[in-house]
């Protein structure tokens, strides 16, 4: 198999009215340093825009960062917009100030895993690599 050049492509998105993106940029840089190709959307994106970018860029992973408290409103809408564009297969993740019970609720709605404050960036990168390895192995086995 000549698949040596395949890279994990990640979209790091900031949905909604939330002006804080140091965390998103830190995570984006860390994923880059783990060999991934990271597209950062910039601030104040609508769910439609995030899903459209994910579709145009054909990313493998969408990671949302949110510190505004609007995650229960925005995260499901991003997922719905992704599904609408035939992007239901992407690995969905995210992080920010999200209470444990909300995390559990979102994880039952198609978000594979959410990360809270204090998470080491290495942990996120290794988790994504592990998940993508599993998926690509499963695809290859078909």
């Amino acid at each position: 198999m000549q698949m040596t050049t395949k890279k994990i492509r990640v979209l790091v998105g900031k949905p909604g009215l939330d002006g804080h993106d140091r965390g998103a940029k830190t995570v984006a840089s860390a994923l880059r340093d783990h060999g991934m190709e990271v597209i950062y959307t910039g601030l104040h994106q609508t769910p439609e825009a995030i899903a459209e970018i994910a579709a145009q860029e054909d990313v493998d992973v969408v990671g949302l960062s949110i510190l505004s408290g609007a995650h229960m409103a925005l995260f499901p809408r991003v997922r719905a917009e992704l599904v609408k564009r035939g992007m239901a297969h992407v690995l969905l993740t995210g992080g920010g100030i999200i209470p444990m019970e909300d995390m559990a609720a979102l994880e039952s709605q198609g978000y594979a895993k959410l990360f809270g404050p204090g998470t080491r960036t290495e942990e996120i990168a290794v988790w994504i690599q592990g998940e993508m390895e599993k998926r690509w192995k499963a695809e290859g086995a078909q």
Binding site: K7, A28, S29, L31, R32, D33, H34, G35, M36, E37, V38, I39, Y40, T41, G42, I53
Partner: peptide, 13 residues
């Protein structure tokens, strides 16, 4: 990156 192969793609911002 010539070292990790990773990239930060920021043009579309």
């Amino acid at each position: 990156s010539p070292f990790t192969g990773g990239a930060l793609l920021g043009d579309r911002i």
